[in-house]
Design a binder for these strands. Structure first.
Lengths: 342, 342
DNA sequence: CAACGGCTTGGTAGCGCTGTCAATATCAGT
DNA sequence: ACTGATATTGACAGCGCTACCAAGCCGTTG
C-alpha cells in the first residue's frame, strides 16, 4: 500500500515548470545552462522561479547528476595566519559562483590528509585544493585516478598531480640570506619551528646560501618540532645566543618567530639591527609597523588562494588555465631590521 | 525505452546488504543506529561494509531523509585571529563525529548574513552557529521558524534565538578600565577600529567605567570604521596623542591595535608603562611575550567554538544542553604594560 | 492457550533532480 | 519542395538511500 510522502506547499522544480508552462527538464536546464533555452522560455522560467522563491535542492541535484558543486580544501592549520589569507582568497574567488567550499584541517599530518582525501573523494567533489607537494604515495595514487581538477598550493615543484600554484621556499629563503650577506652580515643564525616540509625547504635554502658564501656552520641553526609562536621565537633566540653568542643576524622561518626574537633582543637591550639583524618570512602585516620595522620575505598568499580557486573553476568550465603550474614568486622586503652593517 | 544508468562495480548499500545477507534497510540502520540491530546482523553488516569498503552516499541520504549532517557556521571575518581560534574549536569538536561544517563569511554585514542564512537554511542544515546577537529582523524571524539547533556565539545577551555562548564585552571592557583606574591611571584613552557591534559594546563599557569614576572625556576616544591592523594601531595612537597629549593610558579594543600603539610609543621614545600604559583585548598569544609584556582581556575563544559545536550536537542527539545560555567570562591579564603608577 | 507487547526485520515507494535519447521545430542550401 | 543539419524541447527512468508501515518473532501474562 502506498503512503505518499509528498510535502505540501514545498516548491520543487516541478512547480516552477508548471507555472512557467514548460516541462521540468526545461526548467532544470534554465538553472544549469540558461543559454540553451529560447528567449521566451528563459524569461518565463525565470519569472516563475522568482515568483515562487524556488531554491534548488542540492542533494537531489547531486544524487541525480552524480557530482557535487563542492570544492574540497585541505590545509594543515586553521590557526596559522598564512592559511587565513589563502582561505580568504579562495572564498573570495568562489563568492557568487555556484561552488562552495568544504574545508578540512590535516594538522600537518599526511596520514590525516590521506584519510580526509578519501573522505572527500567519496563524495565526488567538483574540485580539490591541497596544501603542498608532500603527500603520501597512496594519496598521490588516489588523486591521480580521480578526474576532478586538483590544485596543489603553497609551493611549486616537479610532477604536479594536476595543477600547482605557489613559490619556491628554497629560493625565497636563499634570497633572504643573500640579502643579509650583501648587507654585511656573516654569522647568520636560523630559527625554525614546526619544521613542516616547506619550512624544511627554507632551511635548505638557508644552508645553500650559507654554504655558497662559505659561511655555513651547523651551530648557527636552532630548530624545534613544536608549533610556532611569538613566545617560542624568544625562546629559540635565547637558545641560539647561548649556542653561538657571536651571531650578528638571525633568519626566522616565519614572522612570529621574528617578532619573538625582536622582543627578546629588546629584553636584552640588544640594538636591532646594530647588534643583531632580523629577517622573517611571510611578511605579515605587523612586520612593516614594528619598531624597528622588520625585514621579511613577502609571499602572495591571498593571490595563491584566489588563483587556485579560479584555476579549479576555469577547468570545470572547460577553459583550461593557461599554465598548469604557476610560480607566484616572492619579494624580500628590506626594512630597518636588516639595514646595512656599518 | 529504458536506458539503465546502473554504474557497474560501484558499492552501494544494496551490495553491502546482499553480502551480509540482510535487507538494504537493515544495512541502512546499521549506519545510523547500530544498537537497533541484533548482535549477529550487526557483525555481519559491519564486516560486509569493511570488506567492500563501502562509503555512504551523503547526497542520497540527504535526499531521502530530508536533512543533512552539515552544520552551518557564519562568521564575519576569516582574517581575524579571534575567529581562527573559534573555528579551531568548532572543527575540533566535530572531529570524528558524523557532522561537517559549512563555513561562510559575512564580512561584518548583517545583510550579507541574512542572504547567507537563507542560502544555508534552504539546504536544511543539521544546525547553525552564527556570530553575535545583532541580526536583521528578517534574519531573526527566519531563524525562529526553522527547527534546527542554533547557537549564537561571541557574546551573551537577552532573548537568544535558541542557544547562546559568549561573554559580556561591556563587562570585559569595564573591567579592563577599572584595572587601569585601580593602577592609578586617570586620562585613559580608547582606540577603536572596525566598530562592529561587539567593539561598540566594549566602547560602552569603557564609557560606563570612565563615567562612574568621573573621568569621562569624549576627547579621549579615537575610533574608525576601517578594518583593524597593527599599523592602524600606530596611526590611531598618534591621532589620540595629537588630540589629547595628556593621556597616561590607552585601552585598545583589540590586541593588534595595542601592539601598534606599543610600537608607536617606542618610536616616540615613550616609556611603557611609565609614560603610557597600554591594555589590549583578546589576549592573543604575543601579548604575553612582547617587551614590555602587554596587559589584555583574555577571552575563551577556542572553548567558545568547541562548546558551541558541542551544544549543537547534544541537541541533535536529544540531550538538551544543561543551560541554553552560557557565559564563558573573561579575565583581565595584568602585565607590565599596565603596572601600577609610581 | 490466546492475547499482548516489545524487539527486530523487511517491502515498497518516494525524496527532487538530471542523463539519455527521441521528437519536434527551424533553417539554410540545392 | 526536399534534404540534412542544428537548435529546442520533452518523456522516462533512475541516482542511492530512508520513511513508513507491516509483519514476524519471542517471551510473558492471566
Amino acid at each position: 500500500m502506498a503512503r505518499k510522502r509528498i510535502t505540501p506547499g514545498k516548491i520543487r522544480l516541478t512547480e516552477v515548470a508548471k507555472l512557467a508552462g514548460v516541462s521540468p527538464i526545461t526548467a532544470s536546464r534554465f538553472f544549469r545552462n540558461p543559454e540553451a533555452l529560447s528567449d521566451g522560455k528563459r524569461a518565463r522560467v525565470e519569472s516563475a522561479a522568482n515568483e515562487l522563491g524556488y531554491v534548488p535542492n542540492l542533494a537531489a541535484r547531486a544524487l541525480a547528476s552524480q557530482r557535487t558543486e563542492v570544492i574540497g580544501v585541505l590545509i594543515p592549520s586553521l590557526t596559522n595566519n598564512v592559511f587565513a589569507d589563502v582561505l580568504r582568497g579562495i572564498y573570495d574567488a568562489l563568492e557568487g559562483s555556484r561552488y562552495s567550499i568544504q574545508l578540512a584541517n590535516t594538522r600537518y599530518s599526511i596520514l590525516q590528509e590521506e584519510r580526509l582525501l578519501r573522505l572527500f573523494l567519496a563524495q565526488k567533489p567538483a574540485g580539490l585544493i591541497v596544501t603542498g607537494i608532500n603527500q603520501t604515495a597512496d594519496s598521490r595514487a588516489i588523486m591521480e585516478t580521480v578526474d576532478c581538477p586538483i590544485v596543489q598550493i603553497m609551493e611549486v615543484g616537479p610532477a604536479p598531480v594536476d595543477m600547482m600554484i605557489g613559490f619556491s621556499h628554497f629560493d625565497a629563503a636563499k634570497a633572504a640570506i643573500s640579502h643579509l650577506i650583501v648587507q654585511g652580515y656573516r654569522r647568520i643564525g636560523l630559527l625554525g619551528a614546526r619544521m613542516d616540509p616547506r619550512v624544511q625547504r627554507r632551511l635548505d635554502g638557508y644552508r645553500s646560501a650559507m654554504t655558497d658564501a662559505a659561511l655555513f656552520d651547523p651551530r648557527l641553526i636552532v630548530t624545534t618540532a613544536v608549533p610556532t609562536s611569538v613566545t617560542l621565537g624568544g625562546t629559540l633566540f635565547a637558545d641560539l645566543l647561548a649556542k653561538a653568542p657571536d651571531i650578528d643576524a638571525v633568519f626566522c622561518v616565519n614572522d612570529d618567530i621574528a617578532l619573538g626574537a625582536l622582543f627578546e633582543c629588546k629584553r636584552r637591550h640588544m640594538m636591532v639591527p646594530d647588534q643583531m639583524a632580523i629577517v622573517g618570512f611571510n611578511d605579515l602585516e605587523f612586520m612593516a609597523s614594528s619598531e624597528p620595522t622588520l625585514s621579511s620575505v613577502r609571499t602572495n598568499r591571498y593571490e595563491m588562494g584566489r588563483n587556485a580557486a579560479m584555476m579549479v573553476i576555469e577547468t570545470l568550465e572547460g577553459r583550461r588555465p593557461a599554465a598548469p603550474v604557476v610560480d607566484l614568486g616572492f619579494s624580500v622586503m628590506e626594512r630597518q631590521s636588516s639595514a646595512r652593517r656599518t
